[in-house]
Amino acid sequence: MIEETLIRAVCAAFAALGFGAVSNPSRKSLPGIMILAAVGYAVRYVLMQLAGWDIATSTLAAALLMGFGSLWLGSVVHCPMTTLYIPALLPMVPGMYAYKAVFSIILFMQNLGTQAEAFLYLNNFFLNVIITVTVILCMTVGASLPMFILSRRATSLTRYRNRKKDRTDIGA
């Protein structure tokens, strides 16, 4: 279990790095993206396998953790939260479910003559759509929640200030 979790965490980190690379991330944010993806995916996997949570709830918990993590990492590397957590969330995007949902429509159309099979594919379509929509909602809401809770801090992560000077100003 530990070994499998670690393998999946490493795979998630490289998946986030690769899919994030398409979206041109800044070099200083790459380690942060990999850490967030690995931790987030591992947490979701453990919650699903050990605690027996469903995919939506475990995604919400993992995304919440990633949201707070991106807030902290963002203040370290001066990057907006979204540029860290969006690529990190990509390995958790339910692409396979989205693909299966669309594929079910095609199969449904091909099997209109056979009622039993047509209903099976229609059922598969709704099942996959519900999972896709719920997981995407959970991961976005979870990761964005810290942005609403600590909005003042979240909106000034890219601000480079002479902190020493600021403190002197406040003192004065």
Partner: peptide
């Protein structure tokens, strides 16, 4: 300039292979 195109291709390919392992 954006990230080198060949480097991005390599990273995406590794990422998708890792994605296969996740499934």
């Amino acid at each position: 300039p954006r990230m080198n195109s060949w480097l991005v291709t390599l990273l995406v390919s590794v990422a998708n292979a890792c994605f296969c392992r996740l499934f």
